[in-house]
């Protein structure tokens, strides 16, 4: 009877497991984040997405209209429009929280596309102003994530740009990992970057 019970549980478990999505990564992106500060606090995040070479070549076939190995203004506009249209509802694959509250992105700024070492590179600025009050810490978390899992985004690097107001703020930054991805096989990958800052 015990065996039967456990077997039935196993079947139910298999059944529930089926809710894992019918999709998985086919595009891989290495991302870099640059947290840009102005005199009030955080102005936003400049992002740089480098696509894997295999998919980059497919993108070029579709969007390099004159087959010269470069992307002209119209090609970039088409790439931008499709990217905006397909990802706007997904907050452009950015899940940004400010002190725990979700920040909706209205639009991306300064969107450009280039080709580096046979790889397509998207660059854009996410305006995300966070004004810092005296003696108050602010916590911003950026997670790059395609919830359909068609695209896998890895934050490879993150930096701070404080050229406009050097030494005005003290900043702590760290990767935050999801406990769930800790496996005995290792290969832990940072999933999000957390930046905590306050006025000096």
């Amino acid at each position: 009877m015990k065996k039967t019970f456990f077997a039935l549980l196993a079947v139910l478990f298999l059944f529930i497991q089926a809710n894992i999505a019918l999709c998985h990564p086919h595009i891989f992106i290495d991302a870099e984040l640059l947290f840009v500060f102005d005199d009030r606090g955080l102005a936003g995040v400049k992002e740089r997405w480098v696509f894997d070479e295999m998919f980059s070549q497919s993108l070029l076939v579709d969007f390099d209209s004159d087959n010269d190995g470069k992307l002209n203004k119209d090609d970039v506009s088409r790439l931008r429009d499709i990217f905006y249209e397909n990802t706007k509802e997904y907050n452009y694959f950015n899940i940004i929280t400010i002190d725990g509250r979700k920040f909706p992105i209205e639009r991306l700024n300064n969107f450009t596309v280039s080709i580096e070492d046979n790889r397509i590179v998207y660059e854009f600025f996410v305006s995300c102003p966070v004004r810092v009050e005296p003696n108050k810490k602010k916590r911003v978390k950026v997670l790059l994530f395609d919830e359909t899992i068609y695209t896998h985004l890895l934050i490879e690097d993150y930096k701070v740009d404080m050229k406009k107001k050097p030494d005005a703020f003290s900043v702590d930054m760290k990767y935050e990992m999801l406990d769930e991805v800790e496996t005995p096989l290792g290969s832990l990958v940072p999933d999000s970057v957390v930046i905590i800052f306050r006025k000096k």
Binding site: N19, I27, I82, N86, T87, T148, I149, Y150
Partner: peptide
């Protein structure tokens, strides 16, 4: 389920 298509 979650379905997916190429977003680019």
């Amino acid at each position: 389920f979650v379905a997916a298509q190429n977003p680019f």
